[in-house]
Design a protein around this nucleic acid. Sequence first.
DNA 1: CTGAAAGCGCTTACAG
DNA 2: CTGAAAGCGCTTACAG
Lengths: 344, 344
Amino acid sequence: MQSKRDRVTSIDIAHLAGVSQATVSRVLNGSPLVNVETRRRVEAAVRELGYSVDRRASNLRLQRSGTLALLLFEDPTSDDSHINPFFLAMLGSITRAAARAGYDLLVSFQQLSDDWHADYAGSMKADGLILLGYGDYLSYRGKLEALVAHGTRFVRWGAVLPDQPGLSIGCDNLQGGRLVGEHLLGLGRRRIAFLGDASTHYPEFFDRYRGCDAALQAAGLAMDPALQIDAQSSEDDGYGAARALIARGQPFDAVFAASDLIAIGALRALAEHGLRVPEEVSVAGFDDIPAARFTTPALTTVAQDTSSAGAMLVETLMALIDGGPAASRMLPARLVLRQSCGER
Amino acid sequence: MQSKRDRVTSIDIAHLAGVSQATVSRVLNGSPLVNVETRRRVEAAVRELGYSVDRRASNLRLQRSGTLALLLFEDPTSDDSHINPFFLAMLGSITRAAARAGYDLLVSFQQLSDDWHADYAGSMKADGLILLGYGDYLSYRGKLEALVAHGTRFVRWGAVLPDQPGLSIGCDNLQGGRLVGEHLLGLGRRRIAFLGDASTHYPEFFDRYRGCDAALQAAGLAMDPALQIDAQSSEDDGYGAARALIARGQPFDAVFAASDLIAIGALRALAEHGLRVPEEVSVAGFDDIPAARFTTPALTTVAQDTSSAGAMLVETLMALIDGGPAASRMLPARLVLRQSCGER
DNA sequence: CTGAAAGCGCTTACAG
DNA sequence: CTGAAAGCGCTTACAG
């Protein structure tokens, strides 16, 4: 960052303090071997010249990078700045967790189709990867296997699956779906539509669907496949899916959207068709993004604990890097009641 | 990222291809000197062993880092995951712009009070810094001067001020304020309250205030200091400021909030006091965050072009790094009409 | 066109 | 407690 002739190195400090460069390094690394007086002289020199260790060199020597890479990928959209707000909240908590752990965080947006595995791991730019983003799991899975084969340390945010390559931290989507199902049942709703892909391609959404179904089954009911419409996590998809649902002409009294973005789009479509929420149709989302508080009516949704999630992702990745024991884990989901489902 | 014994280096490639390590490096850097046949052999070896260049070593040798650091700081709140959505949008566009320019992006959240200048620049972790965040400019200014003195390359997002240390890219806040003022006047509003700090401590907010004032002055009116209440960019501050405004008992027919977050808080306070928006009071914000579309009524606000902003920040920083000419610049503001101000 | 060698700025056994 | 030296994995003048 400085002009080249200015750049202060540990040798300059050594000269100024009248010691060897090795001793400067020892002081800077808090070695207990150094004499108190020597240490003081070195520290004074460091302050005087405003020196700080060159991390590139230090990391090269230590065979580490001191950096974690966060790869945020989005499947369909490459639309600038329209990142799912939920992931942005995750990004915030991951950044803080990494900083607390003494790691820098490299952030990169990727297309799911990109060749992201070699880039960070292989080039030693990062000690480990955090993968964030929903996409078609079945096409994504192969890349995870490549990462594993390559010896890359990584943790993925998403559904915890039995035979998955690598580890993941995720919300208990099954439980979240069940909470929504039970809530809607308690409100007297019976014909619950689901907006979102519900297949093994999108395990997070699928679990939400199945959780809701489980709640219905416990009451002797079941989700009706005729009321399920595919949608990815975007407002436009939610809008389109809700319109498609209405066009089907099947009666429904509730909409469970696989994400808040989908729910927001659905709210718009419902309003356009004169369907009153929550009087005629209950609507629930998933994620509790900031905008969920401001929709009309305010959206009942399932909150994932992003703050713990970030900490847990970093924690697990660090365990992997340090060779300690590490395992996939699920975080509890929490129902957030607002107005879009109606009074209990 | 690999276990140590596995790590492939350029020497392994050299052995396999039967050339010197220097030649491998030449091939990887696209040197025109290399014989076609030799190049092919090396490339085959690279593929076979799945090699990629160790960027730490390469950067050390080249005396660069290939990395830009984005320092996002927030003044009052250290509250997890409650980052201003506007900055998150900026983060998205900066990340993409950095990637397009071939730079990695290191992201870090900082407290304004932290000692952030030495950390990235001095330690050669980044070739340049992008500073993002509003805070008390007067206390912040000293740090900028330290960066300049230190020879650090940086670009700041914020107001372009005449005598500022370093460069900045910012929205034309004065113009944005003027647009709001003119719009409110056109709606017949005369007593416009301003929620947000309006002093040299917060130049962005101050410019928005002065822009609005300029519009009033052009009509022979002026902002009334009795209707200005300090607030930082948060919903809570906006709520508190609007309550304080109401408590003052001075009549007002419009609220210009210095940011959307403030506006959203104000909307809540106004609703609680039974003041109808937009019938009795017009409300306008600034930033056009995603949630602005979902408030009731939807928020009229001023959009900043985050997408160009990110590109321009990166562009300017790279010019600085390459020693080219670089200058502060302002981006135009754009009024986004929704329902919170009423019909024109 | 290619190789041997120096050097980027550190850390840490190895001697003393 | 301290110094001289090796080495992390590259890039690039310098010779040939």
